[in-house]
Design a protein around this nucleic acid. Structure first.
Lengths: 175, 175
DNA sequence: AACTGCATGTAATTGGTTACATGATTCA
DNA sequence: TGAATCATGTAACCAATTACATGCAGTT
């Protein structure tokens, strides 16, 4: 299961609470793996039970910060190196892109415009995040993954622009 | 929910059985949305109950072919045009790419090599599929979506090559 | 007669989502 | 003192996965 290991890896830099992790998932992991806020607490409990994480500190407002154990680090390595990746992909944006050609040209153009808009916003956010990481001293390991997502969003955006032009130029030449 | 609409769209070209749909999902939809074989039967039942599909024919070996109703066509359009897309993305390949920088260089290189291999295989299959579609008379609507996936896999592949080179050249310069 | 591929499902379990429920701290 | 943010969770429901279970039709 991936969420378990995604949480474990996100926890690596240092003690964090479920709340912290939820924020990091929204910011950094969005384009790769998504989780709801309340899923974090469950995963942290299961990681703790398995011995891969421990509650490291308690703070105000009932805050409970967890950190990764040596077993947790070993498990993460084992998962990345020894297990066969699950090739299941779920991306509704891409699914809609695939299905847009079943629509009338006018409808298709509307859907494409909305997708383009959202992708542009995501790319902008990604670039801002990348810039802020690169400005800091020392290279954050996340940079590599984020730049991959940026490349992908750029590719999707290029495709959207292209598809829009094609739909506008020859509304019946779908493909 | 996306699987319901993905199945509905896949059913558009003409009467198909759960078995047919499962095959099409493996071939065409893989890089966009994935579903198990046995999920198809459940979705077809639910689509029928909702009035979006009907059992159109019965064949040998208990084969039951379904086709899309007018209500189904309307529902697909409504979903694509009027509903806000779910931006949830789940892609374990990308998640692993993001996490690879937490590994020792030697481990990272191994993981990257495996990813590169799988991506190359997928790209090869995609190109074969695209060629066979383009050779046929008339443009299949799926071509557009498949070419998007091909672009994305190309991007991921480029990134993998790049990351491998960087890990080999300067094993400690992660980023 | 054996093998491959076609064809359908159900049951049990796990994972994910939605809705609910609560309360402390900080800042304006 | 009111709003925003921090902070944690549970319960009910729905979706997805895994394992199981069955059998026909065509080919060699």
């Amino acid at each position: 299961m991936s969420l378990r290991h995604a949480v474990l890896a996100t926890l690596l830099p240092g003690p964090q609470s479920g709340y912290d992790l939820a924020k990091k998932f929204d910011e950094v992991m969005r384009g790769v793996w998504y989780a709801r806020r309340n899923q974090m607490y469950g995963e942290l409990a299961k990681l703790t039970e398995a011995g891969f994480a421990v509650q490291a500190a308690e703070g105000p407002r009932g805050r409970r910060a967890y950190s990764v154990t040596d077993e947790g680090r070993a498990e993460l390595r084992r998962w990345l190196v020894e297990t066969e990746p699950d090739r299941t992909v779920r991306d509704e944006t891409m699914l809609r892109a695939l299905l847009v050609s079943t629509l009338e040209p006018a409808d298709a153009l509307g859907v494409l415009a909305r997708e383009e808009d959202v992708l542009r916003t995501e790319l902008h956010a990604l670039r801002g995040y990348l810039d802020s990481l690169l400005a800091e001293p020392g290279t954050d390991p996340m940079v590599m993954g984020l730049s991959l997502r940026a490349h992908i969003v750029e590719g999707m955006l290029k495709w959207t622009t292209d598809a829009t032009r094609r739909f506008r130029a020859a509304p019946d030449a779908r493909g």
